[in-house]
Design a protein around this nucleic acid. Structure first.
Lengths: 252, 252
DNA sequence: TTATGAGCATATGTTCAACATATACTTTTG
DNA sequence: CAAAAGTATATGTTGAACATATGCTCATAA
């Protein structure tokens, strides 16, 4: 019975422990992590569990296993940063590399205006409901920036807002991509919401984006999405990189 | 010694067997696949191996495991079609759903012109080498459409061509996305290359795309990429869906 | 002295069997 | 007839034994 209460807590998996150490610089690309048997002893679990966790790291492109030798940390560029699991780890266990932040933001700047534009053409009433509900949540959890729980809710709604727009394209690839990007987006909005920025302005930008989609004005939706992301970039102090990349979509 | 020769052949994994049966309609969404012990007996392997393979299917979002009950096939919409493994299975074991083809093509129509445009702005000499090498390969394996091996090579080069352009954006997210899209792109180019279409025209379209990137003409690259994809759509007989979606990028 | 190969130490890869837990169905009892 | 207890059956977890791959050491011969 009590064990059922402990279960949800879940042991911080060895994967998470190792990720944490890797991101902290304890093990760097090219280094070898401790061998399986040492990990077994250290965490007092069996080898099957260790190997299961190590496999997660392999799937994420984070380590490379060499038979009879050990598990080597791969170069950062090899990591599967579009793997939801990997991005989730990055979100929780690292102040991610600013360069990675910038590149993810640059990618969103490339992509989201188009997604918004497509959504403006194809969104159904049901899609609008989802977008609107997320927007309501944004407004409700706006003020109490002091409470961590409120902040978390606000970020969740922000993510849900963007996710609903992806879904409104009615293209499975975009929809799936939104799932993949979810942790990345969460990371970016969390960080940007912590920054000191006018919340009312941000809310207004989101509102304009939503309205453009509702009124089926693709070009306005395009611009509105750009504005929202520009706000995020500004909050993160990444305007430079963002603007230099933003040019890739200012051609309309 | 001989075993080392047999290894590369590899047993068709249970995952592949099940996928094949699922795609053939043997097991449909909502159905349960045979239980683990039956699969053990059927393929004469141990349960660990079976479970390992089933886990692959779970990772791909294809089945859902219910403790104490069985493994249920999930709805197609739940499948992780951006997972390279999944798309690879789809490529090899199914004449994929035409609707999925259309949506993937629609996605590429949304995305690749932008990727090409960005590549035209940022491509280095080294990037151009990769693009050019792939293009050379395209030309060399053009004529002998009779030989399956030549056809395979041609498709490989086509994929490499697109992949090199993704890489030339110098954005890790686009680069990773190219890896994820790789099997999908391979599937599409293979099918389009089997269709009767003027190979010289296709080659010329690729050449124009390459030249636009070399000469740093983003807007031309944008149009050229559209042309290449339009050719693919035409070859697949998907012009309708493609054009209805293509409007999402005809706004320049 | 150096290059090569056999053999050994060590690490990961694979398989197997036993036990734990979760779910569905059946039976029993009020 | 309904609810609860019990049972059957499936998946989940664990631990040990064995197989294979890799790197290192040492002996031997050119």
């Amino acid at each position: 019975m009590t064990s059922s209460l402990n279960k949800p807590v879940a042991r911080p998996s060895i994967a998470e422990y190792l990720i944490s150490d890797i991101l902290a610089g304890q093990y760097r690309p090219g280094d070898f992590v401790p061998r399986e048997l040492d990990l077994c002893e250290r965490f007092a679990i069996n080898r099957s569990a260790v190997r299961s966790d190590l496999r997660q790291l392999v799937d994420g492109g984070i380590i490379e296993r060499i038979s009879g030798h050990g598990s080597k940390v791969r170069e950062y560029s090899q990591w599967h940063i579009l793997d939801p699991q990997v991005t989730d780890w990055l979100t929780r266990y690292a102040a991610p590399n600013p360069d990675i932040q910038r590149q993810i933001l640059a990618f969103r700047l490339d992509v989201e205006p188009y997604v918004a534009m497509t959504a403006a053409k194809r969104a159904t009433a049901r899609d609008l409901v989802a977008i609107e509900e997320a927007f309501e949540g944004l407004g409700q959890n706006l003020r109490n920036a002091t409470c961590p729980e409120e902040r978390r809710l606000h970020s969740e709604c922000d993510v849900a807002f963007h996710e609903a727009i992806f879904k409104a394209t009615h293209n499975i690839v975009w929809a799936q991509l939104s799932h993949i990007l979810r942790p990345s987006i969460y990371m970016l909005v969390s960080m940007s919401n912590e920054s000191a920025l006018d919340p009312d302005e941000s809310l207004e930008q989101h509102r304009q984006l939503m309205e453009s989609i509702r009124l089926r004005r693709p070009r306005e939706a395009f611009s509105a999405a750009q504005a929202v992301l520009a706000g995020t970039a500004k909050a993160l102090g990444l305007e430079d990189g963002a603007s230099s990349l933003g040019c890739s979509i200012k051609h309309r």
